[in-house]
Computed example of a mutant assay.
Amino acid sequence: MAVTITENASKELKRFLEDGGNGEASVLRIGILSGGCSGFEYDFRFVQEAEIDADNDTISEQHGVKIVVDKKSNLYLDGTTVDFYESLEKRGFTFENPNAVKSCGCGSSFSV
């Protein structure tokens, strides 16, 4: 799998699912979109299983969370680790992408 989620990130994702903050969606889609201040931005959202395209998506389960990544995004996210960070100053998911040449200050966009 091109993308790995840490156990810490999976705990937060499962908590979100249990709290019902995603409606009926149950699969985490991780991908990229054109845009952001650095050229690409991360697409990180829950989707319905019916939205998975078996011909175009790679599906895995990590730490009890189903993850889907499309083929195009796999090219840019290969080796990426998603973690969850929590401190007094900030809280949220982080992306450690070895393919990113530069990232913006907020960490949600990158260029390759």
Rank of each mutant, 00 (worst) to 15 (best):
I30K: 08
H63Y: 15
I59E: 06
G107K: 10
S73A: 15
T58Q: 05
T81K: 09
G107V: 15
D19R: 15
S103T: 15
G79M: 05
G36C: 10
N22C: 11
C37V: 15
S87V: 01
R91E: 12
G92A: 06
E61K: 10
G79K: 07
N22H: 11
D83S: 10
K71E: 14
G105P: 07
G31P: 14
K71I: 07
S10F: 01
I5G: 03
A25V: 03
C104I: 12
L88Y: 14
A100S: 12
E24S: 10
V65I: 13
I5L: 02
G35H: 05
S109F: 02
C104H: 10
T6P: 08
T80Q: 03
A25G: 12
D55F: 07
C104V: 13
N74A: 14
V101P: 01
T81E: 05
G20T: 06
C106I: 14
E61W: 02
S109D: 07
K102L: 07
S109T: 12
E41N: 10
E61Y: 02
G31I: 05
V69W: 02
C106W: 09
V3K: 09
N74C: 13
K66R: 14
K66W: 01
G79P: 07
V69T: 14
S73F: 04
D55M: 07
S26V: 08
S103A: 10
F40S: 08
Q48M: 10
Y85N: 02
T58V: 07
Y85C: 00
L13E: 01
E12P: 05
F40A: 08
K72G: 00
S34N: 14
C104P: 14
S87G: 07
T58N: 04
V27H: 06
S60I: 13
E41V: 03
Y76N: 13
K102W: 04
F46M: 06
D57C: 05
Q62V: 04
G23Q: 09
T58L: 06
G36Q: 09
M1D: 04
T81A: 04
E51L: 05
G107C: 08
Q48L: 11
